[in-house]
């Protein structure tokens, strides 16, 4: 891989993040309330939301990838997404923030 790719667009964000998977769900999604606005799909920095049949869907393995930024919760205006923090001691680990 070229230096440029390593630094920028080809950078593997998943390989560069450390996450202790939460033992329980901390994002709750109510598909009934989803209006399909795709705000969560656009904003998620880890691409954990996908559109399926006009509604958003959260990746099943999100607890291993989510950085707890909460952008999806803010972007959602239909009340379909609820966000709480993962239990104490789990979730994203930043050493160089």
């Amino acid at each position: 891989m070229s230096r440029k790719e390593e630094h920028g667009e080809k950078l593997d964000k998943f390989a560069l993040s450390e996450i202790v998977p939460a033992p329980s769900d901390f994002i709750l999604f109510d598909a009934e309330k989803c209006t399909g606005c795709s705000g969560c799909v656009i904003i998620c920095p880890m691409d954990l939301w996908k559109m399926r049949e006009g509604r958003a869907r959260l990746e099943a393995d999100y607890r291993e990838k989510c950085m707890e930024c909460g952008s999806c919760f803010i972007a959602c205006e239909s009340g379909a997404i609820d966000f709480t923090y993962p239990p104490g001691g789990s979730g994203v680990v930043y050493k160089f923030a």
Partner: peptide
């Protein structure tokens, strides 16, 4: 970001280049 369909991660990685 939502209105302009901008993904922050994508924009940052694009501009780093």
């Amino acid at each position: 970001a939502v209105r302009k369909r901008i993904n922050p991660a994508k924009e940052v990685l694009q501009m780093i280049n």
